[in-house]
Amino acid sequence: MDFLNALVLILDSTIRLSVPLLLACLAGLYSERAGVFDIGLEGKMLAGAFAGAAGAAVTGSAWLGLLCGILVSVGMALVHGFASITHRGNQIVSGVAINFIAAGSTIILGQAWFQQGGRTPALGAAQRFEAIELPGAAALRDVPLIGQIYSELISGHSLLTYFAFLMVPFTWWVLYRTRFGLRLRAVGENPAAVDTAGVSVAWLRYRAVICTGILTGIAGCYLSMVQNAGFVKDMTAGKGFIALAALIFAKWKPVNAMFACLLFGFLDAASIRLQGTPIMGVRVPVQLMQALPYILTVILLAGFIGKAIPPRAGGVPYVKER
């Protein structure tokens, strides 16, 4: 029973820790499937987190905060689009730039507006997305196993958590069952064919990049308005890059992305919980657990666990005619 309790606790924090990864990972999926590489997920998430918390603190409403977060993140995504779609700039360089601009401006603006060393004011209950108790969770709590799983694991998360997991089937549906999704995937594999069919490559890619911005904005808001009560400087702490790793690990597929994010979330949860306590007599350094998502991704990229093949036109700006 003790073991079960510990397991449920770890799985519960796994879900909490994978939500921002999952949202950012799906965000990256839209953009990269359309042929626009995005290593600026981290920066957009950070900007979204800041704008969300700042907006909620100023307006007093969680929903207006979320709107601010999404708008700012979409704005940065459009800058990335402007550089890499309209001006055919290097997508990697543009992503690096976005990350720096977000890292610097969130601290500078936060300090100037709120005078709390780069933090935003602590958010009250009305300015955050609170946990939702699913119907019957309290009643089922005492039923062994099923009750525990339902009331601890499935119930009691915020709206954004359920949204993130619902985005998985939704993204799958969009990508594989709608006209927009077909074109999106096509533009990432062979933009010239899409162009020949009379569909604008640039407009499609811009729409993909906007989807990315919306989702990274929500991912950021989750960090500053659900996981924490306010923005702390550099609060994404590399999550955008773990999401990128998860995207590669998932081979750019939505359902795989969910499992990859849950795996990386579990590693994070386990490393926090274990803190260097020995597993089967061996003391595993915390740092090794923290580095494991990156190591696993490199091993995958090396082609030792299957093969990760990116969208063929990824990273290549489309030139209509010379």
Partner: peptide, 23 residues
């Protein structure tokens, strides 16, 4: 109101304008 992080912004802007938007 200005900390050293201002440099990070300038750095990002230089990368954006001299790199991604160089054309």
């Amino acid at each position: 109101n200005i900390s050293r992080d201002m440099i990070v912004i300038i750095q990002g802007l230089v990368i954006l304008f001299a790199g991604a938007l160089e054309h």
